[in-house]
Amino acid sequence: MVKVKYLCIAALMVILGIVIAITVFPSEEKRVKKQFRLLSGWVSKSTEENAITMLRRMKDIGSLFDAHCELKVPDQPLSGSYTREEISTYAGSARSQVSQLDLKFYDLQVVFPEKEVAKVTLTARLTGRSTAGERTDETRELECLLRKIEKKWLFSQIEVIEVLKK
């Protein structure tokens, strides 16, 4: 009986150890996915957001991107290379035009084609309401490239994949 008790305690401690190890030392895939979680949280906006939070979010969003990030959107003049500062400014300007915004990522598939490079395919859904009360609901498939720079995974390329070609 005593032996069973000790075995149970040992098994529990092993499980606890594994959980702590996974939490403290997450895999590279989890680190990459965390960047998307952060981007989703920082882009999203609630109706109660004040100016200070908005400024902080602008800076936070920029910190997730490489010094130069390439955006590829089929048949759109938006395509091009943007600096971190430009992304922050555009994000701030876009967020100021909406009263509420929600960005969610689904079905993230992470692969590592090269060392310190992650390629992520995912579905992004952006819903919100403009300050004029107009509703927005956009869903796109994205292919993102992230590079590991100074132990941080940063977005270096975002491509919009055309699911339906007119």
């Binding site: 689904y106 079905d107 598939q109 579905t123 869903t139 498939e141 699911v163 339906l164």
Partner: peptide, 10 residues
């Protein structure tokens, strides 16, 4: 029609 996976479809 799927996007990147089965969570969001058209």
């Amino acid at each position: 029609i799927r996007f990147a996976g089965s969570k969001v479809m058209l």
